[in-house]
Amino acid sequence: MSREHRRRAANTFNRPPFAVRLASHIVVYTVAATMLIPFLWMVLTSLKTSGEANTPPSLSNLLPATPQWSNYATAWNVGGHVSLLDFYINSFMVAAITTVLAVAHNALAGFAFSKMRFRGKAPLFWATLLTMMLPAQVFFIFAYVLCSWIGYIDNIQALVVPFLASGFGVFYMRQAVTAVPDDLIDAGRVDGMHSFDIFWTIVRPIVWPGITALAIFTFMNSWNSFFWPLLVVDSMKMKTLPLAVADLASAAYFTDYPTTMAAATLLVLPLVILFFFMQRAFTQGIAMTGLKE
């Protein structure tokens, strides 16, 4: 059936009366607006004076009289001798190192599970799948003890090393690599390529969209992670951005809403920018995997 034909067929059934179409749009866009309003409110508040922010809202004071960009400077320099820049650097280092190494590990493991033959493949693969189902509530306790034994607490290692592989990532890459035709792999083999060369020159370009999607998820999860860093980070200088913002917001909350909201804006900005640039990879990756965390 041609595409045009198919669309017409769908249209004949699906085109309801104008009123229904209008109502549908109104409902959907109302929900969409509720997604946006809290963020708008956040940005608006971040530009107000403390006095303006504490006045009950009305139409006349919804917008700041003069945008107080200095709130961002206040939020930025809030730690005294440490600025938000330090926390940005911490978070970025952690997320970047985790993403690069974890994706590399997961992709190679996925390649091995999909295209290679070796003793113990089945039990190792089942063990990998099992790790996806084990509850963090049970294993985080001893993982913490372990980190304390090997001196990882309050070090960047504690935030990175446990996340350098994931059952989900291995499984995801294994599914992606399985789609690569065996003929291509065999061709490389006949040419006498080493298995890593086969992965790098043949498999990697084909599964690149999957690698991108996994990289985005890994980065996003690392950037946003809260529970584990809360446990393993003690000192101010090792805090990641979410921890720092939570501290700042808790401390400033009852006095200074604009600073809190400026800090919140600074926290979400990098991911929102990343999202707008890589939207297709984001949504396709999610649609492909059907999994988030």
Binding site: H105, T131, I141, L164, S195
Partner: peptide, 28 residues
């Protein structure tokens, strides 16, 4: 893929991921 496991490269690819999952998830 029969050849690809030769020389233990499959184990090389799997070593770090499996070690991390074992040490930080399975054992704990």
């Amino acid at each position: 893929g029969a050849h690809l496991g030769a020389g233990g490269s499959a184990y090389a690819f799997l070593f770090f991921p499996m070690a991390i999952l074992t040490v930080f998830v399975l054992a704990p």
